[in-house]
Design a protein around this nucleic acid. Structure first.
Lengths: 129, 129, 129, 129
DNA sequence: GTGGTCTAGACCACA
DNA sequence: GTGGTCTAGACCACG
């Protein structure tokens, strides 16, 4: 499988794994019912401590993203993640505020941020498939 | 002053303080030359250990956000954009990309992000002087 | 390892440690990828509080000299010169000027400084590989 | 008088004053027997706490640079500062080492440092009077 | 009064 | 085992 991990990334390794799996399920790269590698298998592949994989899986299961059956394996769950609208918007606004603060400290005006984002979104759209 | 801290937030306390001060300098609540509460003062206000405040202040100083003088106090620094243009833009684009990725995870389309940012910038502008 | 510390030196302990590590990476005693003693280990060696070592390591990390991974350890970072040419040269010239001023205070002529540096560089070169 | 002080310099204010006076006596700008401003006078002039001036003067007197007579004033002392040769050389070598370490972290080779210093010294000589 | 350093000791996050 | 955060409390340097 196509997982990878960067130990020198600030993000804890178990988090990197969680993010990749979340993203894959969001993308459709992983569909409900798909089997995930076993903890040991993945640990070998990423040359990472099995505890680390285990922790990632546990957290994913807690969030209802995956489902593990003892002795059988680990699978992508049916359930879909739903965050309430207000929650989502709140987080999104927080993220936007973080961006604006960062922009300020980098010396960009709000209009420049707006312009840059506009351009960036256009680029992304073009490269969309 | 209007600082507050949530010990049960995942974010370390000193980080919460850093973020609040960065934000305040970014939106003009704190202006260059303004004096910040003394380490001890802020420590009692937030019922937090003085060392924790100190750590936040030191980190802010090395980022050039504030300036401290022993025996005098701590002050908001003159803003000075030192990084070269390419560097700045590169960092800004990276920040924008992080935002777009986060937006995607939260299930927002790019147009929605664009719209939200537009609104937010308008709000901030009002508080500009 | 060969670290040592003098608590009665005017310089803060964490600074002494920083200087030693910077020096060691500068003259090749520590190379990129080398593992540093763990915080606790070094703390007992130097009979110093672990927090003090931790502070030194954290400061070194933000200067890009070392790289630490939680749960793994602390390592010498790959050297990476990021600053632009003009910036670098400006800083270097400032450092040279500081040296010349200090030399003047100590009563050395410029030619003597030149001579001493020449000798010193030769010595260092020998320890190059 | 031509003293000045920069509170935002890393160096403590009292140190800045000491350095200026030391330099002036080394230069000949201040000669043995010259009277220095009173503590109060200097404090007003530099808009600095009198304690700070006082501390500088005390330290200078301890080093034999100046001599104060109660009720009369403060004067440059006759005695000349002498550091033993080995001491001076030791300090000078330490300063050179600091320069070389800094150079390394700025990405300069030893030969480049040598070259830069050579140029700098030549410049200084030309601008000497 | 200000900020800076250090200790002792606790608890957490990560691998 | 690793490093990171926080507290309580001491002492120092500076103005």
């Amino acid at each position: 499988m196509w997982f990878h991990v960067d130990p020198s990334d600030g993000l804890p390794i178990y988090m990197q794994i969680i993010n990749q799996i979340k993203r894959a399920t969001a993308n459709g790269l992983l569909k409900a019912g798909d089997q995930l590698p076993s903890v040991r298998e993945m640990a070998v592949q990423l040359t990472v401590n099995p505890n680390t994989i285990s922790k990632a899986y546990q957290e994913l299961e807690r969030d209802g993203i995956i489902k593990t059956s003892r002795g059988i394996g680990t699978f992508v769950a049916e359930k879909e993640i739903k965050i309430v609208y207000e929650e989502r918007t709140k987080e999104m606004m927080a993220a936007i505020d973080r961006l604006l603060v960062e922009a300020h400290h980098l010396g960009f005006s709000r209009d420049e941020v707006f312009k840059l984002l506009e351009d960036r979104i256009k680029d992304w759209k073009v490269s969309d498939k």
